[in-house]
Amino acid sequence: MKKVIGLLTAVGLMTAPLVQAGTVTVSGSTSVAHVMEVLAENYQNTAKKNVEVQSTGSSAGIRAAKDGTSMIGMSSRNIKENELNDTTKEIVIARDGIAAAVNKANPVQDLTQEQISKIYRGEIKNWSEVGGEARPIVVVTRENGSGTRGAFEEIMDLQRTVNGHKVTAITPTAQVGNGNGMIKTIVANNPYAIGYISLGSVDDSLVALSVGGVEATDTNIAAGEYQIARPFIVLVNDQPHPNAQSFIDFIMSNDGQSIVAEEGYIRVQ
């Protein structure tokens, strides 16, 4: 018995520094994770505290914050009332647009919100119907549980009610990509594809469409003119771990919000 107690004591002494280090665990939206990883790297360099970011999807991040399996959850869509409990609070850390994106070879540069919605419902099937080539439209969507998909469906009226439950109205023939990176790859390699990604993830591999003549820019989102936009939210316990609170304080500081802006998102303060 003494040997067992001695071993447990030794293990406790060995792990004590790790507990004191207090790694901040963050999980959820792949869209929020893009900027969160940059924020975490900068915070670690200055505060000398560890931050672990995992991309698990908005729904999983909300559950993790609610259940306490992560100190901080991430969501790129609005939170439903039944997803929270009395001890969970939301903090908006940034705002982001969702870009409807096409291949660089596609002559179509502008669509209305209604046209995009009809494309995703499968009601518009050919690019010739919206001023493009006579080619079938390849619709690309995010996976179930994606915050980007949830926000896109809500904003673009791509949900229908069946037996009292909301279900997707996106055409079942749509290709599914997990994460912004996969959507970009599919669209960049198919001249007849259309997908949607976080505006902060847009690069020169594809083209973000104007919507109703309004370009997808930070300025237009901040002015409320570009309508396909959503908040970036973190969720924490109402009495978060001190290390988690310290990291959130950094995110909401001028330095943290400057990083948000540098990464292509809209600061909230």
Results as ranks from 00 to 15, higher is better:
163 N>V: 02
15 T>A: 15
25 T>D: 08
72 I>V: 14
40 A>M: 01
40 A>H: 07
4 V>T: 05
33 A>V: 14
68 G>T: 08
107 P>T: 09
141 T>M: 08
82 N>V: 11
266 I>P: 03
9 T>A: 15
144 N>P: 02
106 N>R: 13
54 Q>P: 00
35 V>G: 05
32 V>Q: 01
262 E>D: 15
145 G>T: 07
117 S>M: 12
2 K>C: 05
160 R>N: 04
209 L>I: 08
96 D>A: 15
179 G>D: 08
267 R>A: 15
187 V>H: 12
29 S>D: 10
265 Y>I: 00
222 A>K: 05
172 P>F: 03
185 T>N: 11
229 A>W: 00
218 D>Q: 08
130 V>E: 14
244 A>H: 03
184 K>Y: 08
114 E>F: 10
58 S>H: 05
14 M>F: 09
216 A>W: 03
126 N>A: 14
211 V>G: 01
207 V>D: 14
245 Q>I: 01
4 V>K: 08
44 Q>M: 10
39 L>R: 02
250 F>Y: 06
48 K>M: 12
236 V>R: 00
39 L>I: 01
159 Q>I: 04
197 I>N: 01
171 T>M: 06
247 F>V: 06
15 T>C: 12
78 N>R: 11
224 G>S: 03
143 E>Q: 08
64 A>F: 04
118 K>Y: 14
19 V>N: 07
160 R>L: 10
184 K>R: 14
196 Y>T: 05
83 E>Y: 07
127 W>F: 07
183 I>N: 03
43 Y>R: 13
14 M>A: 09
148 T>E: 10
243 N>A: 12
127 W>T: 10
83 E>D: 11
167 V>M: 03
71 M>H: 09
79 I>A: 05
125 K>I: 12
163 N>H: 06
4 V>E: 12
115 Q>S: 07
264 G>F: 08
256 G>M: 06
39 L>H: 12
4 V>N: 07
165 H>F: 04
186 I>E: 09
261 A>M: 07
238 D>E: 04
74 M>Q: 10
223 A>H: 05
189 N>L: 01
226 Y>I: 04
89 K>A: 06
11 V>R: 02
